[in-house]
Design a protein around this nucleic acid. Structure first.
Lengths: 208, 208
DNA sequence: TTATATACATACAGGAAGGTATCTTTACAA
DNA sequence: TTGTAAAGATACCTTCCTGTATGTATATAA
């Protein structure tokens, strides 16, 4: 068919992205064929090439759909500058994990990006996006630990720089293991308490 | 050519694996062609099909070459049952990281397995291997934390189960970030001290 | 010495998939 | 009413790559 209304065209586009998500997840990006994706979306390859130039374009468009955890956490952490930083972080993490667990589409996207695609040169835009998000997130974390230090809420053997990096790796690790699914745990139920315990031990111990 | 000596055949096999390692890393597993790999090894596809049935066989053989970090750490941790567990762990981690950093081949292999291949069904054997190693490693970690608890060397707010899982995710996170290269850090120099600081804070605080 | 299995090389046939180019239909503007 | 461009459908072509089949030379056992 042809020239539908603008809205119908957008629906087609979304349907294609949904289909790509599903097919990429099942078959991997490289082995997924555009024809398969188009058919799953109820149209033909013509529509794919119209909306997204080529396969790479489709992949990158799908990548844009993914709200990165780093960005979400940064968002949650930015406001409220006079709240106890460590407590604030613990809460933000718990909330973000909870969020993630409730959003199966985001989990599927993360799985695709982590285990169903090969990062060669042409994928650089997706990697670059992550890189930038990582950098910004680590900066935010460091600022929070610095504020904690200024407020005397950071144990003396932890320096902000190291604490931030440590924390960052920790989140990354939990997320990876959750996605890989080997450990078989629930994100919010495990990570929240673990992070709290950790932050409690990073916090300055009250004299007892 | 034909029927060379057994040793020469083995050399060919190794050359093919080396070539596969290089080509997989550069082009990703899916986009690498067997012909390209064979040529890089100085032979033809005939040799590939002889030594490793097909592409999947080649990939899995390459996977076997990788000594998993989990297994290495388990090895380092198994002996010496009356050494202080936490200290032992800190040392083992540092040594393993050092080891890894000195072995560029292992890093290349890890990179391939993490960022240059798509885990669809047929890759299951490789995933299963990791799963088993993960499980065993986490068990070992838990045992160590349990011993630490028995010796009164574990802070009361940390339970062995949680500490082990936490520690496991932490290692996984550091390794991933190192491989991804976004953080731009050196493994041994960063991880060792960070892990020590952490273990110090997990350890029972001496009364002060 | 001969036979045979080994260790490849080469040739062949085939499919699958992607890009492009060319229709076709329809919303919408003039 | 008609022209035009958006939104897809179809057709075609070309490129790659894989598996298999077969050829062949040689190490080695008998």
């Amino acid at each position: 068919m042809a020239r539908r209304t603008k809205q119908e065209a957008d629906e087609t586009r979304e349907a294609l992205l949904d289909a790509a998500e599903q097919v990429f997840l099942e078959r991997g990006v490289a082995r997924a064929s555009l024809d398969e994706i188009a058919r799953a979306a109820g149209c033909t390859r013509g529509a794919v090439h119209w909306h997204f130039r080529d396969k790479l374009g489709l992949f990158l468009a799908l990548d844009e759909r993914l709200v990165l955890l780093q960005d979400e956490l940064r968002e949650r952490l930015c406001c409220d500058p006079n709240r106890p930083p460590l407590e604030h972080m613990a809460y933000a993490i718990s909330a973000a994990m909870d969020d993630l667990e409730r959003d199966p589409r985001r989990k599927r996207l993360l799985t695709i990006m982590l285990q169903r695609c090969e990062y060669v040169e042409e994928m650089a835009p997706a990697l670059e996006r992550r890189r930038a998000a990582d950098l910004a997130f680590r900066t935010t974390l460091r600022e929070h630990f610095e504020r904690a230090e200024l407020r005397g809420e950071l144990a003396p053997n932890w320096k902000p720089e190291r604490a931030a990096f440590f924390f960052y790796a920790l989140i990354s690790g939990f997320l990876n293991e959750w996605l890989r699914g080997n450990a078989g745990f629930e994100l919010a139920a495990e990570v929240g308490p673990a992070v709290c315990t950790f932050l409690a031990c990073v916090a300055q111990q009250p004299a007892s």
